[in-house]
Amino acid sequence: MRFSLAAALALPLAAANALQIIGPSETSYWVQNTSNTITWQFSQGDPNPISINVVNANNATLNGVFAIAPFVNVSQQTFTVTNVTLRAGDGYQVQFVNASNTTQIFANSSTFSVKPAGTTPAPPVSASASATSSGASASGTSASGTSNSSSATATGAAHNSALSLTTSEGVFGVIAACGIASLSALLL
């Protein structure tokens, strides 16, 4: 009885961090020198605002973190990056990080590719059907000190409150909820 009551009280902690990057993905690649879109789902209580970075484990493809946009409101659910100057290659990931502490990662996309200029764009992935737009611009510097810049336009969409256990944050939220429930059960 103690455990089930504590677990029920801790469940909102797991649901509060459902930030999930939908695109880009393995099937939704980016193309150099074109507009490419990042889409995601979120729930009330998710970290907001976030900063958007691109990383690649292969340092020959991307040496360090490429900053796309700081202080993005998660309720927008989409962000379009124009004139992508990343090298063609595989193994890229979009990361949503704490806008004040970029070492704190909230969500990772699945790995995706950047295709050479002239490649047919991947089919779009959307978080919602309705959208409004506003402008922004982004620039970044990789760890190697190379400066990269690209302009970007952010497009906002309606709120989606899905619970996701497919992201590491959702799984860690459940683990944290179970830990809190266990601790509560011991204290009662």
Results as ranks from 00 to 15, higher is better:
E169W: 10
P70D: 13
P24H: 10
N101M: 00
S150H: 12
S144A: 09
S51I: 07
T141W: 00
G140R: 02
L86P: 07
R87Y: 00
S168L: 11
N98Q: 05
V174C: 12
T39A: 15
N101S: 14
S43A: 15
A57K: 15
A185D: 05
T119H: 01
T80D: 06
N36D: 15
N160I: 10
A122Q: 10
T153E: 04
K115N: 14
A176Q: 04
S144L: 00
S113H: 01
I105Q: 10
N98P: 08
T39P: 01
W30Y: 07
N33G: 02
H159C: 01
V55Y: 02
Q20R: 08
V174Y: 09
I68T: 11
A14Y: 05
S161L: 06
N73A: 03
P24T: 09
Q76Y: 13
T39L: 08
Q104A: 04
S164A: 13
S150Q: 06
T78P: 01
Y29T: 03
W40Q: 08
T132M: 07
T120H: 05
A69H: 00
G170H: 10
T120D: 11
E26S: 13
T102M: 01
V74H: 02
Q32E: 15
D46M: 06
V114R: 06
F3H: 11
G45Q: 13
F42C: 04
D90G: 09
A162T: 13
S134M: 07
V81M: 05
T80E: 03
Q77H: 15
Y92D: 03
A176S: 15
F79G: 00
S130K: 10
T166R: 12
D46S: 08
C178R: 00
S168H: 06
S164R: 07
F3Y: 15
V84T: 09
P124N: 14
R87W: 01
W30G: 10
L5T: 15
F71H: 13
I175N: 08
L86Q: 05
T80P: 01
S182H: 05
Y29R: 08
N48V: 07
I38E: 00
G89T: 01
G23C: 12
A158V: 13
A69E: 06
I105M: 09
D90R: 07
S133C: 07
N59E: 14
P116I: 01
V174A: 14
